[in-house]
Amino acid sequence: MHYLLMIYSNEAAMMNRTKPEQEQMIAAYTAYTEALKKAGVLAGSNRLRPSTDATTVRIAGGKSQVLDGPYADTKEQLGGYYLIDVPDLDAALSWAARCPGATHGIMEVRPIWNMTSYP
């Protein structure tokens, strides 16, 4: 099954990290990504620019409405994701727990909607 591991974290705290702290975190993410690759479960991953770079768009009354900023203005924001292919939720959860994001933020694990099983 495919699962999306979403990393939610406090952007302000992330920005306030010292250079060595940042390097340490990047090294941790690099090692984690390597481990996913070695296990043959990685299907995709990306880090996102901070939510200050986000723009929302919706159509209201036939007109598109574009707004600066993220959809939900919460302290924790989606900062990146891993798409993995593992046998079950337990495997997905154990990979999520290993992600550095589980330490500096919160991991949300969502199964991918398998369109073939939808009538």
Binding site: M1, Y3, P87, D88, L89, D90, A92, P111
Partner: peptide, 10 residues
């Protein structure tokens, strides 16, 4: 079913 919770003894 949809989240893939396994039927196993941990």
């Amino acid at each position: 079913r949809e989240a893939g919770i396994p039927f196993i003894v941990p």
